[in-house]
């Protein structure tokens, strides 16, 4: 809606990876409403704080519902929406700072619950909106505005983290190929359970990684991105672990376990056994 809203003055920098992620999410949501014959209003996009979170205002075409909240809390907000209305398709969009630094405490619990939502994480390994500080995925030793003598922490491997925490669907993608990315997001939305689509989405202003991600043969730079082969068994934990630890950034579905019940399914199973008491019955239990 905001493309036509003169009052909304936020802009992504030219070449920002988040343009491609937005496009991919638009493709995935459009496909979904056509395939499932549901209105766009059945989608809810819960956005984090940072450049990436502004995606919720920049979506074009039919508008989903949006929730642009506070820093780091996309996952529990999404949990409230999903458990309040299990019929809705709930998508989280957040950056590496929001999702993996201030918000990291929420990944483990949602993975353990297998909350049926899809998180699209836009990783540019830098805090862009606050002008270039280090993030959890910034490499050790890298100079940023907050690490003038080089970053002192080793970077985390987010895919490894998700696998360890028990996410039931993990995909890794690249913002430069929106059509391919859309397929991964669709697969995440179709997955019954907690899905994370981790996207390399470069920041052209503070951390332009396009060249090292795609490689440059003329300069002798090998690409960090590599496609996961069709033979990869994504249902196999050991294969997923191996793919994550093969160096570079895999592109494709890393891990998928569709056998685990979702939180909502577990609740349905309990509720079919527990007798619901009326408020009157509950009150009567206190009669003198």
């Amino acid at each position: 809606m905001s493309a036509k809203n003169p009052e909304y003055d936020f802009k992504w920098c030219p070449g920002c990876g988040d343009f491609g992620v937005r496009r991919a999410l638009e493709f995935a949501m459009s496909d979904r409403i056509i395939n499932r014959e549901i209105p766009m209003e059945n989608n809810v996009v819960v956005a984090g704080i940072g450049c990436s979170g502004n995606l919720v205002h920049l979506l074009e075409g039919d508008q989903p519902y949006g929730f642009h909240g506070i820093h780091g809390r996309t996952l529990p907000i999404a949990m409230g929406v999903k458990m309040g209305r299990p019929d809705l398709n709930v998508v989280v969009v957040a950056g590496d700072g929001d999702f993996l630094s201030i918000g990291m405490e929420h990944i483990g619990p949602q993975a353990a619950r297998n909350l049926d939502i899809t998180a699209v994480v836009m990783d540019n390994a830098v805090y862009g909106l606050t002008k270039g500080q280090s993030s959890p995925t910034t490499e050790l030793g890298v100079t940023t505005s907050s690490t003038p003598y080089g970053k002192l922490e080793q970077s985390i491997n987010p895919l490894d983290l998700y696998l360890t925490l028990g996410a039931s669907f993990i995909a890794s993608g690249f913002s430069g190929k929106p059509r391919d990315l859309a397929k991964l997001i669709t697969a995440g939305m179709d997955h019954p359970g907690f899905a994370i689509v981790h996207v390399q989405s470069p920041c052209t202003t503070y951390n332009d990684t396009y060249q090292i991600l795609k490689g440059n043969p003329r300069k002798g730079i090998a690409p960090l991105l590599w496609d996961i082969s069709e033979e990869h068994d994504s249902s196999d934990y050991a294969s997923a672990y191996q793919a994550i630890h093969s160096g570079g950034w895999p592109v494709g579905i890393v891990y998928r376990n569709a056998d685990r019940p979702t939180l909502n399914q577990r609740i349905q199973a309990i509720q079919s056994k527990v007798k619901q008491k009326t408020t009157q019955e509950l009150l009567d239990a206190y009669d003198i």
Partner: peptide, 21 residues
């Protein structure tokens, strides 16, 4: 959500439809 009337519930200061301003 689920019915027409989509907007952005926004914690940033916003305009009537919920976009940041």
């Amino acid at each position: 959500p689920g019915r027409p009337g989509s907007y952005v519930a926004n914690g940033s200061e916003h305009d009537p439809i919920g976009d940041t301003t």
